Computed example of a mutant assay.
Amino acid sequence: MKAENSNNNKDHQERLLVSYILSGGLFFGLGGLHRLYNGKIGTGVLWLLTGGVFGIGQFVDLFIIPNMVDEQEMRLRAKAGLSPLGVPLNQPAVATQLYRSPQEKLTMELLKAAQRRGGQLTVTQAVMETGATFAEIEAVFREMLKSGYVKIDNDPETGAVTYHFHELN
């Protein structure tokens, strides 16, 4: 997060510097380039045609360029689907599932299966519910056991090893 903020700050500083350099275009008869660069097309064209509103508008802009830069960055972030802080907005649940590892997907399937079965699940039931192999199921159960998400016991009637998801009871 800190690196991302540093990156955003660097981009902001670069946009600010470019805006000030472009505002110097007035000396070459090109007032308003900084406005065009920051998405203010209408007033940018007006500044181009009038020499920065006879230099007065161009001078005033020297004080408001930072606000123009901020506004443009907000528009660009919104267009990219990001919050003002650069956090993705409105991510569909499907997109987040694409980035899950196979083990994470299997863990989710096991949790859903355990919930359907009253918070208890055997390895065989898990294999049947998910289609994964016994070895894959046992590996995920071992990780869950280490993390304290499940407790292990034997079914009193069948003797089968049963995993209890105490949060799903």
Rank of each mutant, 00 (worst) to 15 (best):
S101H: 08
G131N: 09
K146V: 09
H166W: 08
V94S: 14
L121D: 00
G24K: 03
Q120I: 07
Q91L: 15
E138M: 09
V123T: 15
Q115F: 03
L121I: 02
N7T: 12
V87L: 12
E109C: 05
L46Q: 05
Y99W: 11
R75Q: 14
G148N: 10
A93W: 08
G24L: 13
T107V: 04
I64Q: 10
I21A: 11
G57N: 02
L16N: 04
S19K: 03
V45H: 11
N90S: 10
P102Q: 14
M74R: 13
Y37D: 00
A126P: 04
I56W: 02
N169Y: 05
K40G: 00
K146P: 00
T122R: 08
P84D: 13
S83V: 03
G29Y: 00
E129C: 01
D153T: 15
M108L: 10
S147N: 12
S101F: 09
L89I: 03
M1F: 01
Y20I: 02
K146G: 02
R35L: 10
G159V: 02
G52C: 11
G25W: 02
K146S: 11
A160H: 08
P156K: 11
Y99E: 14
R116L: 14
P102D: 10
I21Q: 06
S23K: 10
F165G: 01
W47R: 04
A160M: 04
F28Y: 13
G52E: 07
M74P: 00
M1P: 09
L85I: 03
G57T: 01
Y20L: 01
F141Y: 05
H166K: 05
K105P: 08
K40V: 05
V140E: 14
T162C: 07
K151T: 13
I64L: 11
E136K: 15
G148P: 03
G86I: 00
A113R: 09
M1W: 06
P66A: 12
L62D: 01
H12D: 13
I41N: 05
L46A: 14
Q72N: 10
M144V: 04
P102C: 15
Q58C: 09
E71C: 04
L46H: 02
G52Q: 09
P66R: 13
A132P: 08
G44K: 07
G42W: 02
G44Y: 01
V140R: 15
G131D: 08
H164R: 11
Y163C: 00
Q103I: 15
L30W: 14
I65N: 03
N154T: 13
Y99Q: 12
M108E: 12
N5T: 09
V94Q: 02
I137E: 00
F165T: 12
G31E: 02
N169A: 14
R75C: 04
V140P: 01
A135N: 10
I64H: 09
N169C: 02
M68S: 12
N38Q: 04
L17Y: 00
M74W: 12
